[in-house]
Simulated scan of single mutants.
Amino acid sequence: MNNTVYINRTGTFLPGNPVSNEEIEGILGMVAGKPSKLRERILKSNGIKSRHYAIDPLTGRTTHTNAQLAAKAIQNALLNYSSLSDISLISCGTGSPDQILPSIASMVHGELKNPPCELASFSGACLSGLSAMKFGYMSILSGLENNAITTGSELTSTMMCGKNFVEELHSAFERFDSNPEIAFERDFLRWMLSDGAGAFLMTNKPNESELSLRIDWIEIFSYASVLPPCMYLGAEKLEDGSLKGWREFNSYRELGDRSIFSLTQDVKLLNEHVIDFTVARGLQDTLKKHPTNPQQIAWFLPHYSSNYFREKVYNSLKSIDFEIPFECWHTNLERVGNIGSASIYFLINDLLKSKKLKHGDAILCYVPESARFSTGFARMTAVQH
């Protein structure tokens, strides 16, 4: 067995040029030929100023697959450092795979063309990237592997294109004033999500001359036994809160007519439960296993989908006597948007390369997932060999 696991190299990849708020609808397209009535107020609330899409703004064609985004992030992580031929494990997570089968890790391996190695794929939403990270961590900690590549990657823009939304969605927008949740269920995600990928190289030894991040622990908790689905794709939510999956519909036409493959969020359910379960309860459950004093934390890396949740996360931490002042927070939502499973990779990469870290700094990462309410926390420590 290995006593410790280190993140030695990090890499990210963002496709294309930054897309401003004014450019989004021109690239994603309008629904039913009409501009969104919600775009401006959603963007004002989420605080995102720019993001990246794997869509050519001139032709509308996809520039990269999800697997290609992840492969480029891996190549950036290993640049001038390590050979792909030395990799023992590739562990990948995504909420937006290019296809149902083969798995994301298989497709990434195919892009990299490195020698045979072990693969692991994780699906879901934002936590799939942290789950892939934890599998790499555990594989090295157990002594089964000496190194691992882990990734989080998303290609959501192609799902958010206006051509994928049917006329009934526009009629829902018309009812915004009387029932805002109806419109928000689908439209608000169009202005929240973006594309990109992040990758880490983990080994059982720290870097010789640069800072490494020692992984102290990673904990993930699901509350699916307590709460119903909140965000879903390839399904329709029934009145009792259960999901009717895409295979239960009568025809491919019905799937299109009912927008079954439109990513949908139950915003009312999200607002009621996401903070309580993913922050307060999730951290309390984590601290039972890993007692931690908030004064020990030099940097807090929260992944939240919108600036709307920033104060709510802070207040929830404060409510359980785990207050972390904003000067200890490191975020990049305004610049890169919400990249789902890749977001925590970008946060860690940005902090590591910012030169703000010093030996001994403790980092606490927070990754919520609203698909059926789960949460993850990870603690790392900056180490100078």
Rank of each mutant, 00 (worst) to 15 (best):
C117D: 02
K113G: 06
G152S: 03
S139L: 06
G143N: 07
A120S: 15
L169K: 07
C161L: 12
T150A: 07
L169C: 09
K113M: 11
C117H: 10
M138N: 15
E167Y: 11
C117G: 04
V166T: 13
G136T: 08
T156N: 06
G136D: 06
E174H: 09
F176S: 03
S142G: 05
L141M: 07
P115I: 07
E168H: 14
S131T: 11
C126Y: 01
P115D: 11
F173Y: 13
N146F: 07
E154T: 01
K163Y: 11
F165D: 06
A132Q: 03
S153K: 02
A172N: 15
K163Q: 15
N164K: 05
V166H: 13
F135T: 05
F135E: 04
N146L: 08
T158C: 14
C161N: 09
P116S: 12
G129Y: 01
G124D: 01
A172R: 10
G143M: 10
G152E: 00
A125T: 00
F173N: 13
K113P: 02
P115M: 08
A148L: 08
N164S: 03
G152M: 01
L127H: 01
L169A: 10
I149Y: 07
S128M: 02
K163G: 05
S139M: 09
S128V: 02
E154Q: 01
G152R: 00
P116R: 09
M133I: 12
N147I: 09
S142E: 05
E154L: 01
E118T: 11
A132I: 04
M138A: 14
R175W: 05
S157P: 07
A132K: 01
S121F: 05
F122N: 00
K134I: 01
I149M: 13
L127C: 04
L119Q: 11
A148W: 03
P115F: 06
T150H: 04
I140V: 08
G162N: 00
G136H: 04
N114R: 04
N146E: 14
T156A: 11
L119A: 13
P116E: 08
L155S: 05
H170T: 11
S153M: 05
F122D: 00
T156C: 12
L144C: 12
C117L: 10
N146D: 15
C161H: 07
I140T: 02
A172K: 10
F122C: 01
S123G: 13
I140F: 04
C161Q: 14
N164A: 03
L169D: 10
K113W: 07
T151A: 05
A120D: 09
L141Q: 08
G129E: 00
T150W: 04
G136I: 06
G152Y: 01
C161V: 14
C117I: 04
N146S: 15
G162W: 00
S171I: 14
T151Q: 03
M160V: 03
F173V: 11
R175Q: 11
Y137T: 09
G124F: 00
